[in-house]
Computed example of a mutant assay.
Amino acid sequence: MHGVNGGAAFVILVVVVGLVIRQQLRTRPVRRIGSLVALGALGVLGVAGTAFGVLSVVKDHALTALPVILLVVSLAVAAGFGVVRARTVRIWRGPQGVVLRKGTVATTGLWLASVGVHLGLGLWIDHVTGVGVLGAVSLYAYLAIGLGTQNLLVRSRAAAL
């Protein structure tokens, strides 16, 4: 995230992460399918952004193994944070038997830590590629994997009620 575009990208990052966290802190029903629209949008942006990032790197530089490994590690970390966050979400049976969910302060803290870890890995990826784009644009894939993992496990816990 460099230059003028970097400022806009940072604002978009803050807005997207803020919306994800806000949604996590709302009391809402656990749905069988979950909110596939938001997850799908993040997934599409993640695939498109990561593909754009790779193309931007290979346009002027060789893509070596290290940034690819770091990207895979980053996405694995996203899933790991999703597993841990899922355990912090409160799940209970509400009126009329509806299963409800709500994130906690720990959920928020883990979201912020998760984004911080991704930003650090993203800077490392961009440093080793010599092009400041792949680490930054992979954020949406990171969010989609982390949120998808978390939602899958929350739904699994809710089904056990």
Rank of each mutant, 00 (worst) to 15 (best):
R31I: 03
L139K: 06
F81T: 00
L39P: 10
S114T: 03
V99W: 00
V99Y: 01
H118V: 05
R32S: 13
I125G: 04
F52C: 07
P29C: 02
L112N: 01
F52N: 13
F10Q: 12
L45Y: 12
L63M: 12
T107P: 09
Q23K: 11
A136I: 11
A159V: 02
L134A: 08
H2K: 13
L13Y: 14
H118S: 09
L161S: 00
S138G: 04
K102F: 03
I125F: 06
V98W: 05
I145E: 03
V83F: 04
G146I: 00
Q24I: 00
I33P: 02
I125N: 03
V16C: 06
T149I: 04
L13N: 07
F52L: 13
R22L: 13
G94W: 00
L139N: 08
V72R: 07
F10G: 12
I33G: 11
G34R: 09
V83E: 08
G94I: 00
N151A: 14
P67A: 10
L71I: 09
N151Q: 15
A113P: 04
S74D: 09
A106Q: 09
V11T: 14
G97K: 06
R31L: 13
G94D: 01
T27I: 10
Y140N: 09
H61P: 12
G97M: 07
K102G: 10
G43M: 06
L39A: 10
L110F: 03
L161I: 05
G148N: 01
R31G: 09
H2P: 15
F81W: 04
V37F: 15
V17P: 02
V72T: 05
I69D: 04
V68Y: 07
L147F: 05
G132W: 10
S35D: 15
Q24E: 15
H118N: 11
R22C: 03
A136D: 06
G40W: 12
G18M: 05
K59A: 15
G53Q: 03
Q23G: 13
L119F: 11
A62C: 11
W124M: 14
R31P: 01
L63H: 08
L152Y: 15
V47R: 02
G103T: 04
V58C: 08
A159W: 09
L153A: 10
I91R: 05
A51H: 10
L112Y: 03
D60H: 14
L134C: 07
